[in-house]
Design a protein around this nucleic acid. Structure first.
Lengths: 156, 156
DNA sequence: GTTCGTGCAAACCCTTTGCACAAAC
DNA sequence: GTTTGTGCAAAGGGTTTGCACGAAC
């Protein structure tokens, strides 16, 4: 126990078993890579991070695993128009995003006011009723230019 | 005047001229196609919509034009993880999105409460200060399942 | 006449897939 | 032993690009 990555892996292993799916080395490695990361990763990012240690695991497996984990809700997929998707382990802690439209850096924050939280929860229920959608989650992205790119702009 | 599409086109023509760029037939056709549409279109959607009438205009031109218009802020780009991008003419009227994760249908709504509006404006300023981003816009997506896909789910 | 824009086709890149082999159960 | 998962390489699909021609200024 103790170790949060191991804990996470146990939970996921359970999820898989329930559906007759197996916990294999590639899946374990991908979970650990995602758990170690502090931000969204592309499939290639993940692949490169473990490739030195596990050269036997291929990129196709990373893609297949990410599709599977996304379907199971284990992983969150994010696409900000970069031409490739990014992933992270689904968290119970909800967060909003700051996306730099120049370099596609993504910054997360989750220090909401309670007012903010209540507001969103209420809105979600309202929208659900009005449009007859079943809403699973919401994504809030602030799009703009990050400090680094702002500095570059100023310099040029 | 009167006609809002013509008006829009005039404004865009001005934007182009300012930068030494030209208003051409393909650009005009793409603007009109986007102006006619009531929802986000893919590059191929746009291409197919005018292709019967303007068979001479190619798909590559659509892509090049969309990149240009996006840079100029004339067009908004949306990527919901569908594997292709969607576009619409940038509007002064801000809206939020409902995205169906099964069929990728996108529904927009813009009937916010004033409380909702003020809340977002305040948040944007706050986040701007805290993270030193220059924020241009925000995107709010409620992700879930649309009424049609819900019905199909129930039927199966 | 010069510059900018376009059409076409080929190239590119991310992602998916077919197939034979390997691993998990 | 059967089923599920994987590696590899090839295919797929959206998007971009090089180049020569055409259009806008």
């Amino acid at each position: 126990m103790g170790n949060p990555v191991e804990e996470k892996r146990e939970i996921i292993a359970g999820e898989l078993k329930k559906r007759g799916l197996r916990m294999t080395l590639p899946r374990r490695v991908i979970i650990e890579t995602l758990a170690d990361a502090d931000s969204y990763l592309t499939a290639e990012d993940i692949y490169h991070k473990f490739h030195a240690e596990h050269p036997g695991i291929g990129l196709a497996t990373v893609y297949r695993t990410l599709v599977l984990f996304h379907q199971l809700g284990i992983v969150t997929k994010l696409d900000v128009g970069e031409g490739k998707a990014r992933f992270e382990l689904a968290r119970t802690e909800h967060h909003h995003l700051l996306v730099c439209e120049k370099c596609y850096k993504v910054v997360k924050y989750s220090d909401f006011t309670t007012q903010e939280k209540d507001g969103f929860a209420e809105l979600e229920r309202l929208v659900e009723k009005m449009y007859h959608f079943r809403i699973n989650r919401h994504v809030v992205q602030y799009c703009g230019v990050c400090p680094e790119c702002l500095a570059k702009e100023g310099a040029s």
